[in-house]
Each structure stands twice: as C-alpha cells, then as structure tokens.
Deep mutational scan, measured.
Amino acid sequence: MDSLVVLVLCLSCLLLLSLWRQSSGRGKLPPGPTPLPVIGNILQIGIKDISKSLTNLSKVYGPVFTLYFGLKPIVVLHGYEAVKEALIDLGEEFSGRGIFPLAERANRGFGIVFSNGKKWKEIRRFSLMTLRNFGMGKRSIEDRVQEEARCLVEELRKTKASPCDPTFILGCAPCNVICSIIFHKRFDYKDQQFLNLMEKLNENIKILSSPWIQICNNFSPIIDYFPGTHNKLLKNVAFMKSYILEKVKEHQESMDMNNPQDFIDCFLMKMEKEKHNQPSEFTIESLENTAVDLFGAGTETTSTTLRYALLLLLKHPEVTAKVQEEIERVIGRNRSPCMQDRSHMPYTDAVVHEVQRYIDLLPTSLPHAVTCDIKFRNYLIPKGTTILISLTSVLHDNKEFPNPEMFDPHHFLDEGGNFKKSKYFMPFSAGKRICVGEALAGMELFLFLTSILQNFNLKSLVDPKNLDTTPVVNGFASVPPFYQLCFIPV
C-alpha cells in the first residue's frame, strides 16, 4: 500500500510540474494548442506526416506557434517570411542545433551535424575549407563525379535492359564520391566492405524516417530501456565508426604531411598542428563522427533524390523527352556531361530543381535551437528552445509555385524558357546551418541524371499514369515507394 501511495504522489508531482512548466512558459512563447500533461501535443500531431499537421496548425495559430513534445516546448516556423527572418536575418541567433537524443547517444555531441557552439563552428569551418581545397564546386571533385558517372552508366548497362530496382546502384554512385573525398578511394560496386557500408546507410535513412524515431526523440528514456529499431540505428553508426577508425589508422601509418590526399589526411594534419593548443576540438573521436556525418549527409540524401527523380521522369515521359532533346543538342553522344553545360541547359536545370522542390526530401529539416534569449515577432523565446522549420511550407508555397503539388519544371523557367532562380528554393535548409555539401549534391544530381539520360531511355513496367509517387515514409525524410524500371541503351 505504501508503495502505491508513493507512486501516486510521484505521478501527481510530475503532472503538477508539467502543468507549471507549460503555464509559466506560455506567456512568453508564441500561441499554440493546449498541451496535455506529460505528453504535450503529441496526440494532435500525425507522426506519419508531421508536415501536414504543421500546415493545419498554422492555419489556426499563424506562421509562428508553439507545440509541446512531452514536456519540451518547440517553436514552429511556417512559411517563407518566418523562416527567412529566423535563419537568414537572425542567422546567428537561430544557428543552434536542437535536442536530438538519439544523435546524442550516437555521437556524444561530436561531428558537424549535431554539434553546437565553438566545437560546431570550428569543425564546420575546417570541413568547408577542406572540401573547397579539394575542389568542391571546382574541377578536381567534378572529375571524381564524372568518373563515377561513367562507372554508374557501365553498371546500368550490365542490367541488359531487364527490369531492376535502382535503389542499390543509385546509392553506390554518391557513396563512392564521398569515399573518394574521405578515403581517396572508390570501391567496386561488388566489394563486400562497400556493400556493408551501403547497407547500413540505407537502413539508417529508413529507420530515421519512421514514426518510432519521432517518439524516441521526444521521450528519450525509451532509447535506453525499450527495444526497437533505434538500437539497430545505433549499432549501424557504431559499425561505421569502427570502419572509419580502421581507415584512420591506415592513414596514420602512411600519411605524407607534405601531400595530403583526402579529408582524413587533412584532419590528422590539423590534429598535429593543434596538439599544443589544448583542449582542441580536433580529436580522433571528432574525426570519426565528422566522417560519419559526411557519409550520412552525402550519400543517402543524394541517392534518395536520384531514385525519386527517375520515378518522376517515368511518370512524366514528356519531361524526359525534353531533357534528352536538350542533352542531344548541347552535349551530344561523344563526350561526358560537365558542369559548364548546365548554363546552356535551362530546361534540365529546371527539372533538377523541380525534383528537389517537389519531393521535399527533408520536410522539417533537422531541429534548430536559439543560442540566446531572443525577441522574435513580439515573442520571447528562451535560450536553448528547439525550433522546428517547415521546409515544406517554403518549397510548396502556392504563391511562389502555382499548383505546388504538381510536378512542373516551369516553376523554374521564365516566359522565355530561361532558368529562373527562386529564393524559396531551400531543399538544403538556409542560413548558417545550410548543408555543407550543397554544391557537391547539386553537381552530382546534374551529372548523374544527364549521364543516365544521355545513355538510356527509361521504360516503366506499368502505365506511367498508374505510377504512385507518394512517399512511403514522410517523417525525417521523404522516401519514394518501391518501383522497377528498364534502362534501355540509346
């Protein structure tokens, strides 16, 4: 009986604490739906499609509103004006990374994606500088992407125009580009180590996009005490870190300090320079996690976009025909596509942009946080508050993009057929937390897609009208449904 009384008292205290925290903070924060004790607004949000729920709530509470995930307040920004004001106009104040408990377990605050403060700034600055020195957006990395595009075309030829699921092959190409940047090595598509790495990356994007992960991140005790797919994700990350550590040891034994070959060499050189400046942010643990982040951000996002792009091109054969006509006119058949071609191919450029806009790969991006107490639109948001960005509300804005739910390359073309930029184009987020590999991803999408369409016609196994382009999961990332196609050599 005594234990029951204690339990009831504990629960009562928890409920009172929950109510007090919510009521004391709500006077400062933007308005929002009334949260339930302990669980907050979790029942009012469709976990399978958070973005749709945010759109519905914005119609009631406006472009800036507050939700509670458990006891934790989260300020939501919906629509271009609110997102721009926060991420661009007040970029420094909104540059923090929001709480992501599962990532905390995986990387302990290291790396480039989930770190904060001085650690994040130094690692991000170093990573950007190193990638630029190796030619991100310049010639040397373009050579690597072109080489991988040629290998991709050869792998597709091996399908002999038979029906195939493109998931694996389209994942190999961007993964190999990242391998060449980090390890100075590309792998054969049949290499077992490479296959294991690909498998872990593919599993992780599916797990991260599941409703279960949303629950884990908002009720963090689940991570330590409950079984579930989150444990598989943590094991996959541990596998990748151990693999990278092996490569780091190989580099330490063979590195030429006067001739760095890749990202690992550059990081080890930085560690050597910083060894007298303790404590340094440049450690082996930081290198492991930064490399894992580059793999995660640079492989599955690009391969998922490529997979979605081919599905949309199957669905819209008239678009595919126009792209192939432009390829034939500008590039021809006797040389590989290059980035200089893009400025002469406005329709193809528009298609690449429209694919990214339409699929809305990361509907709410990753959570941000404010780095200080900030007054925002007459609300006071306390330091450390998590900020949720609705990228969907920007990419699918119906004023900027008429009929935003329709796939239409003319969203990025003017009346004369010239490519038209849009400030609403934010597939990689915006501001200080914009994806480090934005330029690389854009290069890969253009070169891989043009190389495929230069060499193959795409054949659907069903009537294009019957192809479903609805994402199968739409949590962290929008993942396309399973499909097969035939690559018919031109």
Rank of each mutant, 00 (worst) to 15 (best):
S162K: 15
I205L: 08
N258W: 05
V292Q: 04
M255F: 13
T299M: 09
F401R: 01
F487K: 00
A350G: 04
K232P: 03
P404D: 06
S478G: 06
I205W: 13
L245P: 01
N56F: 07
G417W: 05
E300G: 07
P402T: 13
I374V: 13
T304N: 10
R335P: 03
W20T: 13
H344V: 12
S336D: 11
D165N: 05
C435H: 00
N334P: 05
F126T: 07
C435S: 00
R124Y: 02
R132P: 04
L366N: 05
T66I: 03
C338R: 10
D143M: 14
T469H: 06
N41I: 03
S140H: 08
I389S: 06
T299N: 02
E288S: 15
T167M: 04
L54A: 08
L380C: 11
T392E: 12
I141Y: 05
V248M: 06
E147Y: 06
F295T: 02
F226P: 06
N277H: 12
L458F: 04
E155K: 02
L11S: 11
V473R: 14
G111F: 03
P227C: 15
R21Y: 14
Y68C: 03
K190M: 08
E148P: 00
L447H: 04
I387C: 12
F65Y: 14
T320M: 14
L447F: 05
L447P: 00
T167G: 07
Q324V: 06
N107L: 07
R377L: 04
E203M: 05
Y80G: 08
C10R: 06
L312P: 00
R105V: 13
L440Y: 02
L208S: 14
K465C: 09
T304R: 14
K241L: 03
F65T: 03
N398H: 14
Y347D: 00
N378S: 09
A86V: 08
E438H: 11
L233R: 02
P221V: 07
P166D: 00
A238N: 13
K119C: 11
L195Y: 04
K247N: 06
L362I: 15
F282C: 07
E285K: 08
E199A: 12
E326S: 01
F183R: 01
E104P: 07
I50R: 11
I389L: 14
P464M: 05
H230M: 12
Q356L: 11
E325Y: 10
R186P: 01
F65D: 00
L458Y: 00
V8E: 11
V355Y: 00
P260F: 04
H344C: 11
V60I: 13
G111M: 01
L388M: 11
G62T: 02
S280H: 12
L447V: 11
I359Q: 08
V60K: 15
G137T: 12
K241Y: 04
R377Y: 05
P30V: 02
G475D: 06
D143C: 12
P31R: 07
Y379G: 04
A291L: 15
H410N: 15
S18P: 15
Q214Y: 13
P409N: 02
R335D: 06
G96S: 11
P346I: 04
E328W: 13
L4V: 13
S478R: 05
F134Q: 12
V237R: 09
R97L: 01
H276S: 12
R307N: 04
I182N: 00
L67W: 07
F407P: 00
S286A: 15
V462P: 03
L197S: 01
Q214S: 11
L29R: 04
T385W: 03
G171H: 10
L71C: 13
L388Y: 08
F376H: 06
E253T: 08
Y483W: 01
M269I: 15
F168R: 09
W20L: 13
S51G: 14
K270V: 09
L294P: 00
E300P: 03
E104Y: 15
F183G: 03
K399P: 07
Y308P: 00
P480V: 08
K206F: 03
L311K: 01
Q278Y: 10
L14D: 06
L306A: 00
G384P: 02
C10H: 05
P409S: 02
P337E: 00
P337Q: 00
S220I: 13
I387S: 03
N403S: 09
E81W: 07
T371D: 15
A103G: 15
N107H: 13
P227T: 12
D349E: 11
G437E: 03
T66R: 05
D397L: 03
Y483H: 01
K160P: 00
V323T: 09
V462M: 08
T371S: 12
N378M: 02
Q484S: 07
L449V: 07
G40D: 02
V330G: 05
A350S: 05
K206Q: 10
F263V: 06
C13P: 15
T364P: 03
F239V: 09
T299K: 07
T305A: 07
Y61H: 13
S127K: 03
F94C: 12
G384F: 04
L152C: 02
T305I: 05
Q192V: 11
E154V: 07
Q484V: 04
V472S: 08
D414K: 05
L87G: 07
I50G: 08
L67T: 05
K383R: 10
F100H: 15
F134G: 13
I99M: 15
I222S: 08
K270L: 07
V462Y: 04
P163V: 06
K423T: 08
Q192F: 05
E81R: 07
A321E: 10
A173N: 00
Q324R: 11
P363F: 02
N259S: 09
M406G: 10
N196S: 14
Q340H: 10
L201R: 05
K421D: 08
L54Y: 06
D262Y: 02
D89E: 09
F69C: 14
S280L: 08
G96Y: 10
G298L: 00
N466T: 13
T348E: 00
E415W: 05
R329G: 11
C435T: 00
R342N: 03
G171T: 09
K138P: 12
G442L: 14
D262F: 01
P33E: 02
I223G: 12
S127P: 01
T392G: 13
L77V: 14
P63F: 03
S162G: 11
R132Y: 04
G298E: 00
T229S: 15
L90A: 15
N231T: 12
S460H: 02
I207Y: 10
L15G: 13
T302S: 07
P221C: 11
P337A: 11
N455Q: 10
K423V: 07
I327R: 00
A103Q: 15
L391T: 08
L453W: 00
K158D: 06
D143V: 11
E328S: 14
L195S: 06
P481F: 00
K185C: 05
K241R: 09
R377M: 07
L449Q: 02
F110R: 11
L449E: 00
I50S: 09
K465W: 06
D262G: 14
K121D: 06
I47R: 14
Y225K: 10
Q356T: 09
L87V: 15
M136T: 11
I488Y: 06
I264V: 06
D408R: 03
T371R: 09
H78F: 09
V76N: 03
M257H: 14
F239P: 03
K28W: 08
T371Q: 12
S18G: 14
T283M: 05
V323M: 13
R97N: 05
F134I: 15
E318F: 06
E354V: 01
T305C: 04
N398T: 13
Y483N: 01
T450F: 00
A321S: 13
L395C: 09
K273S: 13
K421R: 14
D49L: 03
D256C: 06
L7F: 14
K465R: 11
S24H: 13
F487N: 00
S390I: 06
P337R: 01
N218Q: 14
F69Y: 12
G109P: 06
N204Y: 02
R333L: 09
K52M: 09
L131Y: 05
S429E: 05
M339S: 08
P402V: 13
F376P: 00
C435M: 01
N258P: 08
C266H: 14
G79L: 01
C486S: 14
S422R: 10
K270G: 07
N196R: 14
